[in-house]
Design a protein around this nucleic acid. Sequence first.
DNA 1: CATGAATGAGTATTCATTCAT
DNA 2: CATGAATGAATACTCATTCAT
Lengths: 214, 214, 214, 214
Amino acid sequence: MSDDGVSRKERDRLVRESDFLDSAESLFAEMGFYETSMEDVAKRAEYATGTIYRYFESKETLYHALLLRKGRQYFGQTQVVFEKSNDPLLQLRGLICCKVAFFAENWDFLRIYMTELAAKTGGSARACRPPQELDDDFENYLSNLRDVFVRGMKAGVFRKLNPDHVVAAFIGMSNECLQTSLAEGVSGDVLEEIEMFVFDFVSGGIVTEKGRSV
Amino acid sequence: MSDDGVSRKERDRLVRESDFLDSAESLFAEMGFYETSMEDVAKRAEYATGTIYRYFESKETLYHALLLRKGRQYFGQTQVVFEKSNDPLLQLRGLICCKVAFFAENWDFLRIYMTELAAKTGGSARACRPPQELDDDFENYLSNLRDVFVRGMKAGVFRKLNPDHVVAAFIGMSNECLQTSLAEGVSGDVLEEIEMFVFDFVSGGIVTEKGRSV
Amino acid sequence: MSDDGVSRKERDRLVRESDFLDSAESLFAEMGFYETSMEDVAKRAEYATGTIYRYFESKETLYHALLLRKGRQYFGQTQVVFEKSNDPLLQLRGLICCKVAFFAENWDFLRIYMTELAAKTGGSARACRPPQELDDDFENYLSNLRDVFVRGMKAGVFRKLNPDHVVAAFIGMSNECLQTSLAEGVSGDVLEEIEMFVFDFVSGGIVTEKGRSV
Amino acid sequence: MSDDGVSRKERDRLVRESDFLDSAESLFAEMGFYETSMEDVAKRAEYATGTIYRYFESKETLYHALLLRKGRQYFGQTQVVFEKSNDPLLQLRGLICCKVAFFAENWDFLRIYMTELAAKTGGSARACRPPQELDDDFENYLSNLRDVFVRGMKAGVFRKLNPDHVVAAFIGMSNECLQTSLAEGVSGDVLEEIEMFVFDFVSGGIVTEKGRSV
DNA sequence: CATGAATGAGTATTCATTCAT
DNA sequence: CATGAATGAATACTCATTCAT
């Protein structure tokens, strides 16, 4: 037993699991779920094909696990933002910051997440659905996000708009901005720019006083 | 020969082709490209499996054809908007109106288009890519859209923001809003509401004077 | 009714049948039976696919018919040779002459016949066997040919060798010579040369007096 | 590692490969390439269908492999004959001996080889062509064989005939003799008889002194 | 009787999953 | 517990044949 109560065996196991998740993540992002074979995943992880099945019941399970791993991490971070403050504007800023930072670090995951979101929102009855656990987290995230906007509206700092639409708009625009920006490679400057842009756009849209008066 | 110079045979052929495209569109939207078999498509269209191949060379060709059919129609409509006026604000309104109307009528296509967009923007090297023809149309659309924003900025009716980001933001938010709204069923009221919301959000964001002053 | 007691209809029918047999013959020779589709045959004959089935029950039937057409013609000619004389040497000469002349005119058929012979002699249980009728003709031809050799041996003009082997040798060598020679294009001179060569080779082999004495 | 530097795994693999080649060889000989399904091959080898594809990329590859296996073996043996002596008569004897012995042991292969030869000489543009490697070996064989005859003619032990025709005649007659003889079952006596017959026939043809004087 | 669109059985091939070593 | 060969169900696609027009 090591200090933190985890045996070497257990640690080894976790390392292996992580190897597979990493391989799968990059391959699924590159080639898509269906164009990636279990053999591909095993090969990239430098294990034998059969070994994956010691760690994951099926290809779908592997997919779920990788969605969960990063997904929970992300939703965990957003949860912190939701809980740290009650100020809608601060929360909004925090969420954007958190999102940009997370996806900049997890570009492969973003691509998978976007595809998943497209399928999910569209209501596709695909064989390979995201795991319930993550769905719950996502629902919770949506509800918290909605709450931020609703409170902001009540407090008069946000305009009174349909909060469900605002949620969708916020998610859609931030995702798309991240995708197109990050596709061209990541640098610190770009990140800051995206972060600022997203907040700016959400806050004030694009029309000027002059434009409004027309 | 009938009045419009198309023989009955030719018309029959087009009807059949359309049957297959319709079946494929709904199935690909529901189940995804890979989870839909050619037999499924044939069955839904009420033909034998082999018959599809008299109309489409391969599953991929069928997919491309259905993307092209609606895609070109949509980009054709946006092109009209781009050409009808030079006023960025009017163009923006027109584009939103056009998008909402089109996708309300083509909910299945929207779902496929969203998945395609997720894959495309994400740079996935999927076996089944959209046809070059549509890619070109899409690039052209992006460039025209960007131009609307750039002209608006020059004219002082739009705020000076990174136009590429604005393009991404506009596309992402409008798509996501449409998806979530339309998923719940379509009614005339909803359409008008989405249209107004999208324009409103793009125009002015969500933060109020009061929020800004904080 | 025309002079020879065949109605125009009947004549038309025979023309059509012949068109199909010609197309099939050239295609089967070029591409092989399995690589040729009924649509190919119809297209080359400039008819619709279904029309073939008014004339031939199946692809196999078509194949049989084309084997029969030329096959019977050929065996008919050899029969004449068998009957015209009783002199083994004259008959042999006549058979060679007849064979060279026939296959020079029917190069496509030769190729099909060779393949068929390879399969038949090899005892392949192929789905597409030659028709019984032709098999009988072939057996009859073999038996007559054997008889020529046997009589020649009895008469002392042929050496006493196993007559079955002689038959096989004669057929094999003449076929192969024709194939390789005709593959390079046909001319009158070539024909005469092959004819002479085959007779010469069958008659006297290749070893000289000197070679024999070694 | 075993003594001969081949691991057990490697040996197992070769055994399996050989199993498939054997099954395919007998089936292709019996039924023909097109009438044999991969499932048939797998079944005869007592493996599952998919297993073949771990050893051969495609049906065509399998076919090529089986042609190569025996083909190279055969051409290897003829090469030895070509190199062992310079005496045309001895070489001729050696080639016949070698051919009879080889095809007696490889009756299935002979049937496939004959079909292949029929197609090849006939110039059929079949989808499933023999591998280039074997074609080269065959060309080399032809050229060496021709050389034997040319040298024999120069040395005065062979009659002066068109050497290309002699090559064709020799190949055709020996193949056909082997096919018809071996089709009836093989015994030591038969082999010796065929061998002698072929040499006898090639050497001296069939016409006697008496026949010649007529 | 010609047509050619529709049919659907048949086949090569793939790949997630299992299991003996 | 790792391995990777074997499995066999699943699927895109072909083509001989049929039949309504």
